[in-house]
Write a protein that binds this DNA or RNA. Structure first.
Lengths: 158, 158
DNA sequence: ATTACTGCAAAGCATTTGCAAATGC
DNA sequence: GCATTTGCAAATGCTTTGCAGTAAT
């Protein structure tokens, strides 16, 4: 429901936190939302890290630190930052695990239609080969990979 | 923890349920596990569906049907079937959402080292272009896509 | 007869939400 | 001063787990 990933509003060349914050302020203003202490704290903490982080870890950190921000607010602010395009949520849409049986199927990947929930399967030797190449380049021993494309099927008859 | 996705043991050309079941029986025997009613019911229900399904839906179905199997057992059996390579779990490893900030970064994807937890970023025009091509082929309007490769970095010095 | 498996209900755990109090505008 | 946010704690929802009873070997 609150899971949107629109085209990013930002695409700066200069990535200083101040510049980014100014853009976030603009974003908030454009939504008639308020510039609050809590939002500033979360925003800066996110930009202070240069690694990947878990929402829950950040929430735990901030819930117990000096610059206290509650869990709920951390999650709410991350949603805003995602909407504004400052952060990317690294995980599938759905919280829940899906399964499919693969006995007798070849390996394949999915286009997921966000309107209908439909899963369209595809496979592509080009993708497989390129991924192999990338793994070699990075000296990475692959166990398996996953490719998911989110969007909308244009098959609709409406 | 219980989330393993080893190389599939099976790769049949003939995909009748009976054949598959026989292989699952072998798999169970090889683990000194038992061939039970509940496992058979879950196995067949999974093979009866040709779509993607949610663990929870299956669990709900079986928890209330004639061939009653409890939620816990459904989950446990799906784990076994995943381990044996009969089903594929369609979702990232981790239950939890990860974030990263993307302000000033280009779009990229990840190699995730399962030993160290390290995220290695890469980008590949070849992949992007091929995905565009596939979307066109399927008349699919992409919103965004995700590529994740799980495995092990070979950089280790140990 | 053993010992693994099942069912159940309770626990886990990340995330979301309702609501009164606090804060930005 | 009024509306939005926050903090808190309770609720949610999927998944996992402990344990006593049940079934497979």
């Amino acid at each position: 429901m609150s899971e949107k990933q629109p085209e990013p509003h930002v695409e700066g060349a200069n990535s200083s936190t101040e510049d980014a914050w100014a853009l976030f302020v603009d974003f908030l203003k454009s939504k008639a939302s308020r510039i609050t202490q809590a939002r500033r704290i979360v925003f800066e903490r996110v930009f202070a890290r240069h690694d990947h982080f878990r929402a829950d870890d950040l929430a735990a950190e901030l819930a117990s630190g000096v610059d206290h921000v509650s869990r709920g607010t951390v999650y709410r602010t991350l949603d805003l930052m995602t909407e504004a395009g400052f952060v990317q949520k690294i995980r599938d849409q759905d919280v829940h695990a899906h399964y499919e049986h693969i006995y007798g199927h070849g390996r394949h990947h999915h286009l997921i239609c966000e309107n209908t929930g439909e899963f369209i399967e595809f496979s592509s030797p080009v993708l497989e080969k390129e991924i192999d190449r990338i793994c070699e380049e990075y000296h990475f021993k692959e166990r398996f990979h996953r490719i998911v494309v989110f969007g909308a099927s244009e098959e609709e008859t409406s």
